[in-house]
């Protein structure tokens, strides 16, 4: 995932459901289709649910990297 240019970064490790998704969604709204957002999130519930909700809204998960107890998700904004 290192070859993907990231256009914005968002840390939602201090958020709980559903604010994790709400914050991610609002951040994605500031980007253009095809741009990439790096989301830093916790393992467990956020890692299970945030990617799923993003896919349901037409975005793509193009990379995931484990970083200790956290994960870095690269999301490509859909239409």
């Amino acid at each position: 995932m290192s070859d993907i240019k990231v256009d914005a970064v968002l840390d939602i490790t201090n958020e709980v459901c559903p604010m994790t998704f709400v914050k991610t969604k609002l951040k994605l709204e500031t980007l253009e289709t095809g741009q990439h957002l790096e989301v830093i999130l916790n393992d467990g519930e956020p890692l299970r649910n945030v990617p799923r909700s993003l896919k349901e809204e037409g975005h793509r998960i193009v990379g995931t990297k484990k970083d200790g107890t956290k994960f870095h998700l690269i999301v490509e904004k859909g239409m």
């Binding site: 559903p18 604010m19 998704f21 709400v22 969604k25 609002l26 709204e29 809204e57």
Partner: peptide, 11 residues
């Protein structure tokens, strides 16, 4: 937040 979550609404 419960509005923003909805695909048809969002921010």
């Amino acid at each position: 937040s419960r509005h923003i979550i909805l695909k048809e609404i969002g921010g």
